[in-house]
Amino acid sequence: MRPSTEPQAVVTGAPVTTEPIIRFQNVSKNWGTNQVLKNLNFEVAPGEKVSIIGPSGSGKTTILRILMTLETPSEGKVIVGGDTLWDVALGQKVRETKQLRETRRKIGMVFQQFNLFPHMTALENIIEAPIHVLGMNKAEARERAAELLNLVGLGKHMNHTPPQMSGGQQQRVAIARALAMRPKVLLFDEPTSALDPELIGEVLSVIRNLAHTTDMTMLMVTHEMRFAEEISDRVVMFDNGAAVESGPPAQIFKDPQQERTRNFLRAVLQH
């Protein structure tokens, strides 16, 4: 069994000064001639809640997708929990190595478009991977799925399929589905930007709850600035494929050091 990431009270706040759980070393990503990530160096400590902000096209999604192995870096090295996920210098071309599979299991992801399996009920969506990937027995998987659905406030919806649920409900199921794999790191790519305004709150409150009650490392791309400020230990401002500025939310939002951060915040906070 892998180590538990059961909800437990953890003091959030100052980043823990241990070996980072995520480390990007000189990572670049090119699409043809378009360099989307430029020699990126970036670290996240275990249990840290990090929000990534920045203008459209700055490479925020690309970082998450490289971590989730949905994208290959063009240059550099990515280490997760002490294991190498990517090392371009080693000529790592094969996408499905054993090492990559093992390392990938530490990571879960919540997508902007939810990506629930439409032919399965909420419950089936959640138990699918624990049973077939982790080899958990069915009864145990169902029990845990029911707990997770309660956690996200959807205990009554376990037999509904995605088309029968609102976007907010779907996204909460998607979060439960990711949690069922007990990831050490959970990635969120703009989890609320595909939602109608009145549904955003319910999803944010689930994420807030996770941030406050688990020791899971969370990495979130978001345009919800107030939310980022509230739940993050650290906010990283991205522009043009590089981290422009990084620091505690109070500092980034109240007293940004960089011109580009100030401009960006002024633009997004206006409305």
């Binding site: 989730m68 949905l70 499905e96 997508f111 990506n115 629930l116 699918e128 991977a129 990937v133 794999m181």
Partner: peptide, 13 residues
């Protein structure tokens, strides 16, 4: 997105 969700859940091809 369906394939990507599967990868994120560690499912092999």
């Amino acid at each position: 997105g369906q394939t990507e969700a599967c990868i994120a859940l560690g499912m092999d091809p």
